[in-house]
Design a protein around this nucleic acid. Structure first.
Lengths: 344, 344
DNA sequence: TTTTATGCGGCCTACGTTGTCGCACCCATA
DNA sequence: TATGGGTGCGACAACGTAGGCCGCATAAAA
């Protein structure tokens, strides 16, 4: 039996059991959880640990409005073992910059204690000299930053729990088309974050087909009493590849052949399109010939379109044709619509 | 004087002082750091803490090849207070999916203990029933995923330290143009991660102008003996806005007016271009009129180009002209180049 | 060889830890 | 109003651990 050595470890276990603020845990529950982990102590000892030892040393709060007291960590407290090092802290700051444009505020907010921790460390590091590190790192996202749709915090918590524990959820969903609130029982099968919109994939009520539900349109969610209806043979990757999110994707990769302007060649030499990319200079011009195996998806096509006149796709023929047709249509727009509209 | 209550706290402080694996810290140094934080204990006690208490309960290693023993945490160990909750763990998994396409492997690797921690938690949560949560979440990045350039781990550590502590670094840099290794002393002023390439902004040797150095082309880095040369009046945001990274950006935001196809309108209603965006239906068509205040930058223009024939920009006139000209040039490409090339 | 720095086992005492008990309080139920 | 279960809390005593101190062993430095 391990007596003494366990005191420290029991404290640590206890600290790990106490949830962060929105959640809280009552003394008897904590006692039971500790017992599950091999710490059989008297209730009195636990009470003493909480109210006399831990809560004086840690930012721990206690809800004593009702009798089984409930304990919780301050919302923004964060402690890591081992402590964050400087490179990791910098990485976290960069990560936050990127993620702010990719995930809804509430979701990024889930990680804010980590980011705050990183910033605090950097502040301390560079205290000698007002280095203002915050002004020293920036992330420039790839592509246009759209504003992520806002998600209700409670919804995110309930749905993520349901997804992982395979439980159905009752939701109030604001339908896109009818503008009406509808009540469903969903059986979550997957979660997809596309750009900045997060979708829950689930079967509805007693049906067997997967449908998409934008998380930000779920107005309320609660774990359901209904029994879980498992769905076999569902594969998220196949589902995405089959074009469910507007990214129709052929199974086989394609060989892209194109002539690219110098500035594009420069970009690609830094960040290749694929592992197999080859760039070869062309005679008579500063342009280069690009050959690469790329996936047959909408993303790649969009990228080519964004490059505009700076790339000249030679193969595959289908893409060449698509780009050509698109250019013709764009031109048609601008020839048809009178310029006078511009002032509107 | 706080005697007893400090035991637990001293252990925690000690644990926070021990660095993660690549680093390590000797017993005397630990003793001194503890003293700095108010824990004045006998060397013997520290030795006992390390070798008998902590290293039996934590994944702590000891390098005893030379006499002042050096202690370190296992590379992949991670412990959080308070413990990770399910929603945060899910968020971390999503974040990792995104970041893998945005930051170099080594940089994301800095955070891998966090991600591993999250995955472990999810594994435990869903152990009952083989829920295979890893198959349940996916992130679809915004725009084409280019392959991030690889960075040397040591370089990242040294440079991030130098940047924050305002110290010069000696680097061996593989010049892009000359293909030759060059030796510089850099005075780091900022770090910019653009798409998937990370650049260090620094002044070189005795010059005062800022230059960009791609992190993945820094082959070696060491803190320099040279004295730090401060640079006043440098503002990273202005630098970026002035077009240093190919994103020329006008100061004033523009009012974008365009007609957009139904699918684009749908996308924008989910993730607006800006806070002020307005979408109004057009008569005679399923298209909608879009009005939004957008920044005057390359990103927005690229986004419009990628949308191709699905948007018809009415204002500003300059963009309309740019898009038109671009379409004409693209068309010129595809009319000039013989289709026969495709089979090459 | 001597010196210094470090690790380590042992010893001893102060004091921290913890089970037990009694009391107070709140709430639900009779 | 009375009663009983659940919970928090102060007090106390017994146990045993934490931690300073000492001496020795070892290895690197002088």
């Amino acid at each position: 039996m391990s007596y003494t050595r366990d005191t420290l470890f029991r404290y640590l276990t206890l600290l790990q059991l106490i949830p962060r603020y929105p959640g809280r845990m009552s003394t008897p529950v904590l006692k039971e959880k500790l017992a599950e982990r091999g710490f059989h102590i008297d209730t009195r000892s636990l009470q003493r640990d909480l109210s006399q030892k831990l809560s004086t040393q840690f930012p721990i709060g206690c809800d004593d409005s009702q009798k089984p007291y409930r304990w919780y960590f301050d919302r923004d407290f964060q402690c890591q073992l081992p402590a964050l090092d400087v490179p990791s802290a910098l990485t976290l700051v960069l990560a936050e910059e990127y993620l702010k444009g990719l995930l809804p505020p509430v979701v990024v907010g889930q990680l804010s204690p980590h980011f705050t921790d990183a910033r605090r460390l950097l502040d301390e590091m560079s205290s000698n000299g007002l280095s203002q590190w915050a002004r020293k790192v920036r992330a420039i996202p790839n592509g246009k930053a759209l504003i992520p749709a806002a998600i209700n915090e409670m919804t995110w918590q309930i749905v993520s729990q349901a997804l992982l524990e395979q439980k159905p959820v009752d939701v109030v969903y604001l339908s896109r088309t009818s503008k009406a609130e509808k009540h469903f029982t969903l059986h979550p099968q997957g979660l997809v974050s596309r750009h900045s919109v997060t979708y829950l994939l689930a079967t509805v009520d007693d049906y067997d087909d997967i449908r998409q539900f934008a998380m930000h349109r779920i107005e309320a969610a609660n774990l359901s009493e209904a029994t879980w209806r498992p769905l076999h043979g569902f594969d998220l990757d196949n589902y995405i590849a089959s074009g469910a999110f507007g990214y129709l994707q052929g199974k086989a990769p394609l060989t892209l052949v194109a002539h690219v302007a110098p500035q594009v060649a420069w970009l690609l030499s830094e960040t290749p399109l694929s592992e197999t990319q080859r760039l070869t200079p062309l005679s008579d011009t500063s342009w280069q010939q690009l050959e690469a195996e790329v996936p047959d998806d909408q993303q790649t096509l969009w990228w080519l379109m964004a490059m505009g006149a700076n790339v000249n796709v030679l193969a595959p023929a289908a893409w060449r044709e698509t780009l050509k047709t698109n250019a013709e249509q764009v031109l048609a727009h601008y020839q048809r619509t009178p310029v006078a509209h511009e002032t509107s």
